[in-house]
Design a binder for these strands. Sequence first.
RNA 1: GCUGAGGUGGUGGAGCGGUCAAUCACAACAGACUGUAAAUCUGUCGUCCGAAAGGGCUACGUAGGUUCAAAUCCUGCCCUCAGCA
Length: 297
Amino acid sequence: MNRLLEICGPTATGKTDLGVYLAEKLNGEIISADSRQVYRGMTIGTGKEYSDTAKIWGYDLAQPTDEFSVAHFQKFAHKKISEILSHGKLPILVGGTGLYIRAILENIDTTAIPPNELLRAELETKSVEELFTKLHELNPQKALSLNESDKQNPRRLIRALEIAMSNKQTTVKPILYDSLIVGLKSDMSYLENRLKMSIEKRMARGMVKEVTDLLHAGVPLESKAMTATGYREIALFILGKLSEEEATQKWLLSERRYVKRQLTWFNKRTDIHWFDIAKAHYKYEVEEVVKKWENKP
RNA sequence: GCUGAGGUGGUGGAGCGGUCAAUCACAACAGACUGUAAAUCUGUCGUCCGAAAGGGCUACGUAGGUUCAAAUCCUGCCCUCAGCA
């Protein structure tokens, strides 16, 4: 089976950095699995990094006002991975968006069913109880499989209904790659420190200008792209609703909360090889593990 | 110094005699996750015992008082803010 190296972990742990390092050593190319780096014009705030030596795919796939979701990513990534493989190189999937990674490694199948905007608009007016009742009528099995949290999550209920009402059949897709998953993390106080520094760096690099440009280009404050951490906060600063100090403070807070959600997601997986980025030579340890995996028949 | 407003849990901020360990929001902590996923949603959240039901203890600036009962009413004191001097 084709090999795929996967590097995951919370934000600001140096995943791309490690990816570039390994790409050089192992003749690989990187694909970013990040739901916000796909947007053009969102560079500083989403932490895009560029390398002269390693190819990085997956940036700037859409306009911030475009519709973009896992399904688009899945299609893109599968295609890109097979291209890289056909050149005899190692594909390295690098990112912090759990669902996107899962869509590739486990090949999520409901992505074949597209959104139905009309239906969504209609369902959005209903209460979660009504949505649940309706789902229970159409697909009792799915309805009963939902946990207490999802039963009260309108977005998930609407999507479940969308699937239940679609006439397209989903087929279980096979797993396509033999993958090694490397995870990067450290303890929270260490990560928080890195977040702080990363925000300072991004501000110095021109985050305010980047957000100003987006606003001038007509990207609405409520748009999905603008929910990326930091963007709304800085936009509010630009609009005079927050001081710079307040804005960066709130930004740090949302980064922190994002990191925790990412860790909740990744910690659940049992197939991740974790490395502590606070350790001086973790890169070499990763390299060793990866090489062993690569040389295995 | 005088006048007015106010001091509530980690924070903002309700409550204005009993149903108050105190609405709500935020933060914190834990969790969910199959086309919005950096999104969305759930649970916990004074403290102690308990698996739970439930129970104990300490709390609404501070010291007293009134009352069967006070975060809520009265008085002194301390502090904060606004206006006048």
